[in-house]
Design a protein around this nucleic acid. Structure first.
Lengths: 155, 155
DNA sequence: CAGAATAGTTTGATATTCAAACTAATATGG
DNA sequence: CCATATTAGTTTGAATATCAAACTATTCTG
């Protein structure tokens, strides 16, 4: 193995180590930042659930459970909490009365946007000083990861 | 706002959205991949703990609790589980007998390496087709994120 | 229309987490 | 050297989260 591939190997190790640790810290910071705001009663998991419910999708309970890989019972419990705290509302579906569609309340939408703004700030910091072609590379890297995830988890 | 910065804005949105979703999927895949191997009794959280304990560091219980931001009681419970399953061992410190140093058993080290190999595969897939300067950019982006995390969490 | 299938909730058991009390050992300072 | 404070880790009890299975209500299907 020559000097160049040794260097690449080291870079790979650096990137791999870095990734392993960063995510957990980001989750923690998301939660602590959100607790500094007016949304003190929200955990990282709930933030994630609010993000999944989304601004305007009106997804069903089952859809959200599938996306987050939670059992239906667990999701019901989580939704009860978020509803009690005033972040979401359940909308019963008139065309199929078995179905409950989920929506964010105005408070929930504020939380969603605050969370999104945090992520945008993170991305902006991450790509500070990058030009257009650098950013394309980053996109490519993320799409590669998505492909990898798709392959491993059987699409 | 002109066309170029609109495009950058879109790229930022893409990257931001992508990041929000990818991590959770990676955690899930890590766990499901590890469950396909001989290490069927390991959860993603335990994988994370094994990674933190590390191959040769012999960290103390308190150090690990601080790194993972777990209470000491929670960590004791987690360590009991991993010890029972044969992945870690507690080494009582002769110089200060209050201290317990943590080590992976040989089974634990095998798990560590399997997990690390998965991450390396992920990074290799992610950087497929990238040259040396692209990889430098990726490192820079990750260091920027680490800086951001440092700033927000007060170093 | 009867039975199968689906959406969501409830239930009961198990697991996770935390903070506080506790035990044992070491450090401190008078 | 001793009394006290501090530190490391465990135990305990309460709160919370999670799951699978049973259940209810509704819709689909043959």
């Amino acid at each position: 193995m020559n000097a160049i591939s040794d260097e690449i190997k080291e870079d790979y190790n650096f990137i791999s180590d870095s990734l392993v640790d960063i995510y957990d810290q980001i989750m923690r910071i998301e939660e602590s930042e959100i607790k500094k705001s007016r949304f003190k009663d929200i955990t990282a998991k709930e933030l994630h659930l609010v993000h999944t419910i989304g601004l305007h999708d009106h997804k069903t309970t089952s859809e959200v459970a599938r996306i987050l890989r939670l059992s239906k019972g667990t999701l019901t419990a989580n939704l009860n909490n978020l509803e009690r705290k005033g972040y979401i509302s359940r909308i019963s579906n008139q065309r199929d009365r078995r179905i409950i569609n989920l929506a964010l309340t105005s408070k929930g939408r504020l939380l969603y946007r605050a969370h999104y703004a945090f992520h945008r700030k993170l991305v902006e910091q991450c790509l500070k000083g990058f030009d257009g072609s650098d950013i394309k590379k980053m996109k490519q890297a993320l799409m590669n990861v998505e492909d990898f995830i798709g392959e491993v988890s059987g699409r």
